[in-house]
């Protein structure tokens, strides 16, 4: 696969990442009419808009989102409602936004995408699986280009994850999003070739490197069309 573009944003100063600022998120909300959308959706839509850049979305564009914790901020808001309100009075908007594929729906509605849109969730190698699936979609003729977007939002559960399982999750996890625009056409190549090599992956990756590898993201930020990247 060829990488047409790659963007990465984080609230921490990570190599290869741009700083995720309130202004960026606010600007995305205005640009994409995200009045009711939650923070996870805001991250995904931000990445979708920036990874596409000036390119025009078309019916050949697919979307795959990947996450470990997903919309837990909104999920827990729904649980707040259940705990604090009469059962028959919880807020419908919160519930509908706690569904993992709500973010994909916002990207679709914003960019008018009719191609396949799939939301993945997992704790082991979810971004790598998403990139693998992008390859399957492209070779299977389901689309001509794919956006793969992986995000983790800052939420009570992600902040407590280290306390609950210190060997598995780091303290002070970053919030952020990474996005790839992928294609089989060499004409779309701006950031090099991406090679997906399943047997090389032997252990779970961290959700706080968005299911991927920090070194890869750093390399991608500096890559050009002659680069070669392995996942």
């Amino acid at each position: 696969m060829f990488i047409g573009n790659f963007v990465a944003y984080s609230n921490q100063a990570l190599p290869g990442f741009e700083l995720l600022t309130p202004e960026l998120l606010k600007h995305t909300r205005e640009r994409a009419a995200l009045r009711r959308a939650d923070r996870y959706t805001n991250l995904i839509v931000l990445a979708a808009l920036h990874v596409l850049g000036d390119e025009t979305p078309d019916d050949g564009l697919a979307l795959i989102t990947a996450t470990a914790f997903g919309t837990h901020r909104t999920t827990f808001s729904t649980l707040d409602d259940i705990l604090d309100f009469p059962e028959a009075q919880i807020l419908p908007t919160r519930f509908s936004h706690s569904v993992h594929n709500a973010a994909a729906a916002y990207v679709g509605a914003t960019l008018k995408l009719h191609g396949p849109a799939i939301a993945l969730a997992g704790f082991e190698q979810v971004l790598c699986e998403a990139l693998d699936l992008a390859k399957t979609f492209l070779h299977g003729g389901l689309c001509s280009r794919v956006m793969v977007i992986a995000a983790e939002e800052k939420a009570l559960l992600t902040e407590k994850a280290h306390e609950l399982w210190p060997e598995r999750f780091p303290a002070d996890p970053p919030e952020g999003v990474v996005a790839f625009l992928l294609s089989l056409s060499a004409q779309d190549n701006r950031r090099g070739r991406l090679l997906v090599d399943r047997p090389a992956r032997t252990r779970p990756s961290s959700p706080f490197t968005f299911g991927g590898d920090a070194r890869l993201f750093q390399a991608l930020a500096q890559a050009d069309a002659t680069s070669e990247h392995h996942v």
Partner: peptide, 18 residues
């Protein structure tokens, strides 16, 4: 490969297609 598809009410059909 192992993936969990969380595509709301189409998840099961999507998993079979994938």
């Amino acid at each position: 490969p192992a993936i969990n598809v969380s595509n709301a009410c189409a998840s099961g059909a999507d998993a079979i297609g994938i």
